[in-house]
Computed example of a mutant assay.
Amino acid sequence: MKNLLLLIITLTMISCKVSKFKGESSPVSHTIWDSLLMAHVADNGLVDYQGFIQDSARLNQYLTALSTHHPNDKFWTEDEQLAYWLNAYNAYTIKLITDHYPVASIKDIKPGVSFVNSVWDIKFINIESRTYDLNNIEHGIIRKQFDEPRIHFAVNCASISCPKLQQRAYTAKNLDQQLTRAAKEFLSDSSKNKITETKIEISPIIKWFSGDFTKNGNLIDFLNQYSPVNINNNATIIYQTYDWNLNDTKSVGG
Results as ranks from 00 to 15, higher is better:
M1S: 15
K2N: 09
L5H: 12
I8C: 15
L11Q: 11
L11E: 09
M13Q: 09
K20Q: 10
K20P: 01
F21W: 14
S25M: 09
P27I: 01
I32Y: 00
D34V: 08
S35E: 15
S35P: 03
L37Q: 06
A39W: 10
V41N: 02
D43N: 14
N44C: 06
N44V: 00
G51D: 08
I53C: 10
I53M: 11
I53L: 13
Q54S: 14
D55C: 10
D55K: 04
L59I: 01
Y62A: 12
L63V: 05
T64G: 04
P71C: 07
P71L: 04
N72P: 03
D73L: 11
F75S: 14
T77C: 07
D79A: 14
Q81S: 12
L86G: 07
A88T: 05
Y89H: 09
A91R: 02
Y92A: 00
K95E: 15
D99M: 05
D99H: 00
V103Y: 01
A104N: 11
S105Q: 05
S105L: 03
I106P: 01
I109N: 07
I109F: 03
P111G: 11
V113H: 14
V116Q: 14
N117D: 15
V119F: 10
D121H: 11
F124E: 12
N126R: 15
R130V: 12
R130W: 12
Y132D: 14
Y132C: 13
D133H: 07
N136A: 07
I137T: 01
E138S: 01
G140V: 11
I141Q: 12
I142K: 03
R143D: 05
R143G: 02
E148R: 04
P149F: 00
R150L: 08
H152L: 03
H152P: 04
N156L: 02
C157S: 08
A158L: 00
A158W: 02
S159K: 01
I160D: 03
S161T: 06
C162D: 10
C162S: 12
K164D: 05
K164Q: 08
Q166H: 14
R168Y: 10
R168E: 06
T171A: 13
A172L: 11
L175D: 03
D176V: 13
Q177T: 08
Q178A: 11
L179W: 04
R181P: 05
A182Y: 07
A183M: 08
E185L: 12
S188D: 09
S188I: 00
S188A: 13
D189V: 03
S191Q: 09
S191N: 13
N193T: 02
K194Q: 09
E197F: 10
T198L: 07
T198M: 03
K199I: 12
I202W: 00
P204I: 01
P204H: 04
I205D: 05
W208L: 10
W208N: 11
W208D: 11
S210Y: 13
F213P: 03
K215Q: 15
K215P: 02
L219Q: 13
I220W: 07
I220K: 01
L223W: 02
Q225S: 09
N230I: 14
I231C: 02
I237K: 14
I237N: 11
T241K: 13
Y242M: 06
D243N: 15
N245G: 14
D248K: 00
D248T: 04
T249N: 09
V252D: 11
G254Y: 06
